[in-house]
């Protein structure tokens, strides 16, 4: 870990201003991912702006019947919120399938969106990694890639977004609300929030430097069967090999987003239109242009079969 300075922010705009002011500064909230990465020197912030004291930890109804989730709402609290459990079951289930109880107690809504990949080469600072050290190369291509992306990746990076919550947020059409150092706010649709790696895998989101997430808003609830099906090698406390967040109707229509297959939660409205034709056709469409490795090609079939199970459960 490199030495860093530390301050507690007193307002969102001031927090953003602090991060803008100090080169190499970062926000810290729950720290469940950032601190681990700092110990390994994968992340080396010079200055931490602690946002935990900001008044961003409430869940409130919005005018259009949805919810505004404060950036600092802890995963445990969000999953347990009655309004979330009633109207957004997919989100509650996704949260509870992630990490452990202890981590969920610390992890925040905004921090969860920003968690970084679990690609093992990203974690080993001795290995080339374009995400960690742009231009150094990608060790995962041609290496151990069983967990990594099958679609949306690039020649520069095949890392996956590892989260569960974001996959549910994607299927719920959430919006990310931010503020910058000048106090300007904006709403970023979740679909545009995470970026594909292209030639710059180190840039993972559409956030501008210093821009701070203040809330995530959900539109009004969508009826249907809310499901989060997470497939993994052990029963708990593991990242998804693949996961499916879905809101599916009895007639087989619905929306789905897939986790563990791409650098971002993977959703394709054209594939959703094919859902009534069954899992095989919908999955083929979803993975159009997929370039799996030898190690992770199984994810295509796995997604198809898991989706098949989700669809038959909805019809039952």
């Amino acid at each position: 870990m490199k030495s860093f300075t530390y301050e507690r922010a007193t307002s969102p705009a001031e927090a953003a201003a602090s991060v803008m002011r100090v080169p190499g500064a970062k926000f810290i909230a729950g720290g469940t991912n950032l601190l681990d990465l700092m110990k390994l020197q994968v992340e080396t912030p010079t200055h931490l702006v602690d946002v935990n004291g900001l008044d961003l930890d409430t869940i409130e109804p919005t005018e259009d019947g949805g919810l505004r989730i404060g950036a600092l709402v802890r995963n445990t609290d969000l999953a347990a919120d009655l309004r979330v459990r009633r109207g957004y079951g997919v989100l509650s289930r996704a949260l509870l399938s992630g990490a452990s109880g202890q981590l969920r107690n610390k992890a925040t809504t905004a921090g969860n969106l920003l968690q970084r990949t679990r690609c093992p080469y990203f974690y080993d600072t001795a290995q080339p990694c374009n995400k960690r050290q742009p231009g150094s190369g990608c060790s995962a291509i041609g290496g151990i890639s069983r967990q990594l992306s099958v679609v949306g990746a690039s020649e520069a990076c095949i890392a996956t977004h590892p989260g569960d919550m974001a996959v549910a947020m994607r299927v719920l059409d959430a919006n990310v609300e931010t503020v910058n150092d000048k106090g300007d706010t904006r709403r970023i649709p979740i679909a545009e929030f995470h970026r594909l790696p292209g030639g710059t895998p180190q840039i993972e989101t559409s956030l501008q430097p210093g821009e701070l997430i203040t809330a995530v808003t959900l539109p009004k609830p969508v009826a249907g069967m809310h499901v989060y099906r997470k497939v993994r090698d052990r029963a708990s406390y593991a990242f998804a090999l693949i996961s499916i967040a879905g809101i599916v109707q009895r007639d087989g229509t619905g929306r789905i987003a897939v986790g563990g297959v791409a650098p971002k939660p993977w959703r394709d409205e054209a594939a959703e239109a094919e859902l009534p034709k069954g899992a095989k056709i919908a999955t083929e469409r979803l993975f159009a242009g997929a370039k799996p490795t030898h190690d992770n090609a199984y994810k295509l079939k796995l997604t198809e079969r898991a989706l098949g199970a989700v669809l038959s459960e909805a019809r039952a």
Partner: peptide, 10 residues
């Protein structure tokens, strides 16, 4: 995180 061993749920 990378070398998985059984957890209680397993």
């Amino acid at each position: 995180a990378g070398y998985e061993v059984p957890v209680h749920a397993d």
